[in-house]
Each structure stands twice: as C-alpha cells, then as structure tokens.
C-alpha cells in the first residue's frame, strides 16, 4: 500500500461502497473486510471521515442497532444515489485499468 494519495483515496472509497452494496455493515466489519482484501493499513481513522463524507453526500442508508455491552452500533448500506456513485467509480476504474494495462502491455 502506498500512502494516502488521491488515487488511493478514490480506490478505497470505491471499495467501501462496494462492500456495503447489498448488506448492512458496521464500521468494524468494513475495516476487517478491507484488511482481509489486502488493504492492510486501512484503519478506523481512515474510514470514519470517509463514512461521514459519503453519508453527507447521500450514499448510505443507515440504521442503529443496540448492543449489550457497548454503545448502539451504526450500520451502513448503499442507497440509490450511492449505487450511482459506485457504478460511476467502477466505470472510471475499469477504463483506467484498461488504459494502464494497454500502455504497460505495449511497452513490453
């Protein structure tokens, strides 16, 4: 993982959107899933400003769920406008990845 570049930020954001596409996840589950996928340095400190920003932009449906020993947890799932954002990200990412691959392949 490289450090916190704009490119990286965009990718991380896209991945988070994808994780909550179909099911509600709490922040701890998102961090775990990201780390399991290979983003080893992904942390709560990275996640919660991102969640705040994306929620403000209307990307999530949220719900709170009471827990026995800790404060109520908040769960996130992609909203309609979040879906549009995810599709946009994926289109851009696919096109960029193809372009990058093309250049790398041509050089070889």
């Amino acid at each position: 993982m490289t450090s916190d570049t704009q490119l990286n930020k965009g990718i991380l954001e896209g991945c988070v959107l994808r994780l909550v596409k179909t099911k509600y996840l709490c922040p701890a589950e998102i961090v775990d899933a990201m780390r399991t996928a290979g983003f080893a340095e992904f942390s709560e400190g990275t996640l919660y400003p991102m969640l705040l920003r994306l929620e403000k932009e209307g990307c999530f449906e949220t719900k709170r769920q009471a827990t026995r020993n800790s404060p109520p947890k908040k769960f996130y799932r992609l909203s309609e406008s979040g879906r549009a954002r995810l599709e946009q990200f994926y289109r851009l990412w696919s096109a960029t990845a193809q372009n990058v691959a093309k250049i790398f392949n041509d050089e070889e």
């Binding site: 942390s43 400190g45 404060p71």
Partner: peptide, 22 residues
C-alpha cells in the same frame, strides 16, 4: 458515530495507533 467507532475499536483491544495511525 465517531466516538462509537472509537469505543468499538477500543473494546476490540485494538491499539490506538492501529485504529488511528495519523
């Protein structure tokens, strides 16, 4: 929301530097 996330990370035993590196 933020404080809840911190509380949860703390409860899981994560070190602070792991949860919030910067």
């Amino acid at each position: 929301d933020i404080l809840s996330m911190l509380a949860e990370a703390q409860a899981e035993g994560k070190s602070f530097s792991d949860a919030v590196p910067d």
